[in-house]
Design a protein around this nucleic acid. Structure first.
Lengths: 207, 207
DNA sequence: GCCCTAGACTTCGTATACAACGTGTATGGA
DNA sequence: TCCATACACGTTGTATACGAAGTCTAGGGC
């Protein structure tokens, strides 16, 4: 693993999932000291994150962790909805809905539900959604979708999933999606997806 | 303009639009010499392009300009279709279809139609499509869509648009889209979009 | 003629140095 | 007390140097 990868991972998993850094400027030297490499690989990691839209590089100032506005959050969720609904429609039409895998992911998620393990909970959440997206077999769709989700996580999704109440709600909503898919009921699936995304959006907006 | 921007632009507009570099390895030093800067900013530009999926960085080999497989091209067009159809649907529902602007872009495109100015023709083509996407007001959608289109251009779209026959066909297909939009006819719009993308895909696949 | 091997060469990955630029602050004056 | 100005500091942007690692080629063995 190169120093660049180390810096990239550190930033993406440790820094960008922390709601506290919203609106802060990170200097390259600071990050370099934390990771234990020189500025060069840190800089490269930042460039990549900037290309993905996760940070904003301000000349002579540093890497700015722009707080996601509510408008951007809405746009993000709207886009995710477009992609997920398409994936559901295609998977149902092609008969490639990965019902078994989705149920498995859902059960795994239910097992480790606890406020302390919010990050793991979110990882499995991502897996659940990704299964449907991946079932389309469209690698570019997966890539695009993942990028969107990474952004939403950066917007402070972790904090949101830290309460037992919300975790339970997520599990219920996922259950509804997978049930509708298993029944081959497209309209119900689309409604369940919209409901799930809408609920998350509203919660994230009011937090 | 920084050296990084110079390198980025050079690569994106000059190198990546050239079908001849498909499958080639570019060394950082070569590019640096061409642009007239050191390796550092070139490297940074490459990292950004890699994050966007436009080049592939192979350790100790160089930046690989991966030829787009027909599978990837199909995926790309499928995704573009999803986004464009959504944009059309939303714009029609909200009554925000920019008919006048689209007609203007179409006319401008018709005026400069000539094989020699394929790049300009493509720029206006991009503008036409972007107008519809932008009318949704979703900046993240615009960003995502633009990224997809950049990739398709890299796949050799320029060569395709160099014949008068194809240019005429594009204009016809665009006309069909804008007419359907102006009529407020959603099914016809969706069909016109699918037809346009499908035609382009088929041509690009057989080239 | 083919394959294997060794060595030179190329290329990247990283550290470091320095210059340019902008920001924030302290100081002096009104 | 407020404001303007100048200076010091911090930060980025770029060049350069060096080490590590992989690739390609030439040569020898089979």
């Amino acid at each position: 693993m190169t120093g660049r990868d180390k810096a990239y991972e550190y930033l993406k998993t440790t820094v960008l999932t922390d709601p506290g850094v919203q609106g802060e400027f990170l200097s390259e030297q600071e990050i370099a000291d934390s990771v234990g490499v020189s500025r060069t690989p840190v800089r490269e990691a930042l460039l990549m994150l900037a290309a993905e839209g996760l940070v904003q590089l301000v000349p002579k100032r540093g890497a700015y962790i722009a707080p996601l506005t509510s408008k951007e959050l809405r746009e993000l969720v709207e886009l995710r909805g477009v992609l997920e609904r398409f994936a559901a429609e295609k998977a149902l039409a092609d008969g490639t809905v990965p019902v078994a895998e989705m149920r498995a992911a859902l059960e795994a998620q239910a097992r480790l539900a606890s406020p302390e393990r919010a990050k793991d909970f979110i990882d499995l959440d991502a897996q659940f959604h990704s299964l449907l997206i991946a079932s389309t077999g469209n690698a570019m769709l997966i890539r695009t979708y993942t990028g969107l989700r990474d952004r939403q996580i950066r917007a402070g999704l972790v904090a949101l999933f830290s309460t037992p109440r919300r975790q339970a709600a997520v599990l219920r909503e996922h259950q509804a999606i997978v049930d509708a898919l298993a029944a081959g009921d497209l309209p119900a699936t689309l409604a369940a997806i919209d409901d799930h995304l809408g609920t998350t959006l509203n919660l994230q907006l009011t937090n």
